[in-house]
Amino acid sequence: MNNMYAVFEQFGPPQQVVKLGQKIASPPQAQQITVRMLARPINPSDLIPMRGAYAHRTRLPCIPGYEGVGIVEAVGADADPKLLGQRVLPLRGEGTWQQLVTCPAPFAVPVPEWLDDCTAAQLYINPVTAWAVLTSELELMPGSTIVMNAAGSALGRLIAQLSRLLGYRFIAVTSSSIQAQELLRLGAASVLQTADEATLKAQMQELTNDVGADAAIDCIGGVAGHALAACLRPGAVFLSLGLLSGESVNWQQLHHQLQLRGKLFHLRHWNQRIATEQWQAAFQHIIALLGSKQLELQQPAASFPLAEVREAIAYAEAGTKQLGKVMLTG
């Protein structure tokens, strides 16, 4: 089977370094399946490696794409033949920015008929991260208070919704007033719009009766990360999820001066330490919440065929994040 794919062979601006290629797809091995892709989103985690941020663990040439949905076209000798013709999420295998993706059969997540392709394609990176962080990594109890910066992101929207469902009090910190009402609708208890450490700390002290929050999710690092850390009570968990500023926080200061418990979260590390049953169960929880209308994902901002990947990347980087993901189809 002929397989068109997107690839980058050097690091640089994503729109410039990505290109298209063609190859003959190899048949799946014993425990594998081959999936013809229908849709996959463009995530920041797809573009960041192209710029060389993770050059030490990115092997070139590299096919991008961590998530997406497609139809099983072939199964290996030891894979379940009932998977043939099913829509699945072909995860933890090859990059998804290609027409045909091979992945380990045990990690393929079946998609129910009622779930549309664009929603299904977004079920992995942000939903599973939000689920894992809130149900295990932050060690929360019902009534716990969480504060998060860069909360207007797709991940922040999910944290808001799941916090409400799990009985947590979510305080969102965002630089945009446009996102405030939407975050409140989704489940945030409060939305703060300041990057100043003293102001943010004062507002948090007022909201928590001078106690401070029980946990923080930092997506920015640097100065903004320290401002977030100042909002926590002693002994709270400070979880680093990203470095949008390009700078890390001073972990020694957080530990010794603020008496916080610092953690780093990487989805790939979480994947490695959980059993296959836990992996599949996380998706079933998320799908069930979507089915009961207790959880919602944004509709795509735009869709482009895979052959127009450069145009799609340009659109995705042009400030459309608040509108939803850009999808690569076909």
Rank of each mutant, 00 (worst) to 15 (best):
N2T: 10
Y5V: 12
A6P: 08
F8M: 13
G12V: 12
P13Q: 08
P14C: 04
P14L: 02
V18N: 04
G21Q: 12
G21L: 12
I24E: 14
Q32G: 00
R36S: 13
R40M: 15
P41F: 04
I42M: 03
I42N: 02
P44D: 07
S45Y: 09
I48Y: 10
P49M: 10
M50F: 06
A53T: 14
A53C: 11
A53N: 11
T58N: 04
C62K: 09
P64K: 01
V69C: 13
G70D: 06
G76W: 08
A77V: 11
D80E: 13
R87M: 13
E94F: 08
T96R: 05
Q98P: 13
V101A: 08
F107G: 00
A108P: 14
V109D: 11
P110L: 12
P110S: 10
E113A: 15
W114D: 13
W114R: 13
W114H: 14
L115A: 10
D117G: 02
C118W: 08
T119P: 11
A120E: 11
A121W: 01
I125G: 05
I125S: 10
V128N: 01
T129H: 11
W131R: 02
L134S: 13
S136C: 02
E139C: 05
M141N: 10
G143I: 07
S144P: 08
A150P: 05
S153C: 09
A154P: 04
R157V: 04
L158S: 08
A160W: 02
I171T: 00
A172R: 01
A180Y: 03
A180D: 06
L184E: 12
A188R: 01
S190N: 08
L192T: 00
T199I: 10
K201C: 15
A202P: 09
A202Q: 14
Q205A: 14
L207K: 04
I217N: 07
I217E: 05
I220Q: 06
V223C: 01
A224M: 11
A227G: 05
L228G: 02
L239P: 09
S240Q: 15
S240L: 13
L243F: 15
S245A: 14
Q252V: 02
Q253C: 03
L254H: 00
Q257N: 03
L260A: 03
L260D: 00
G262H: 03
K263F: 02
A275D: 13
T276Q: 13
W279M: 09
W279I: 06
W279A: 08
Q280A: 12
Q280R: 15
A282I: 05
Q284R: 14
H285I: 01
A288C: 02
S292T: 15
L297T: 09
P300R: 03
A302N: 08
A302R: 07
F304P: 04
F304G: 06
F304N: 05
P305C: 09
R310M: 01
A312P: 00
I313P: 05
Y315A: 14
E317M: 13
A318N: 15
A318E: 11
A318C: 13
G319W: 05
L323V: 01
G324C: 02
V326L: 01
V326Y: 02
M327I: 02
M327H: 05
T329Q: 07
